[in-house]
Amino acid sequence: MPSEVEKDAITGTETTGHEWDGIKELNTPLPKWWLYVMYATIIWSLGYFVFYPAIPWVNGFTRGILDYDQRTDLDRQLAEVREFRGELLTRIEGASLAEIREDDELLDFAVRGGGRAAFAENCAPCHGLGGGGQQGGYPALADDAWIWGGTLDDIYATLLYGIRSDHPQTRFGIMPAYGVDEILTREEITDIAHYVVSLSGETEDAEAAARGAELYQRPDLCVTCHGENAEGNVFLGAPALSDQIWLYGGTVAEITAQVHNPQYGVMPAWIDRLDDATIKMVSVYVHALGGGQ
């Protein structure tokens, strides 16, 4: 502290005595009320200590007289949501699939809420978010090809009982292993593969395809399940071979491998895993992905 009050020559204002690199600070005091406002805010802040949890203690913390807790707040909000959903879920439980599709509110809740969330949790690991499918036998659900049928009831049944699952009512279908079990020779299988490829594209070997066509139409072979025009059969789970959707690949080599020793996927039955309302919502959601029939 300087012993003398210094006055700035230009402004006539006193300095505070503080100096930085030759620049002196003028004493231009704040009004008192400004200071009082600060004190008032400090006093106001004491309220938080009184009303809200504030001070950490040896075994816990002061709880405040409002007994406020963010967890309680969250629980209350969750309960509100559950209540709101509960009403919709009850209505969904009582409604048929067609009725859900007709009701704008239920449809919206199934497609954008419950069905979508349940699909993301349970189905997306295999079928991909949005039902895009995955390589290696996980069919796309957003496309227009259905192995076991694409109506609401078909999707619902598939969800309930699964495919090749351990549920007694499961959808079940297995293609014989024509090569491994020596039903057909390797050449015959390759011919059939050429024919199948030619159904939806161009073949590299027309002669082989012609031989394959004959084999295909033999009553004890492909035609029985996959149909005369290779349109498939949703009751047997026999995929259409005339389209461009291939679960295990659409090249001659991949089709040969599949006829030689078929691969199968398994989908679990959800009837014991999810409640009926959820399965209904997922059915409606999957149906609305873009391929529902």
Partner: peptide, 18 residues
Amino acid sequence: RERSPLFVPLSDGSIRNG
């Protein structure tokens, strides 16, 4: 544009976007 899935191949060989 919807991003999951990015695109969906359809049975007639065409591609669909949402």
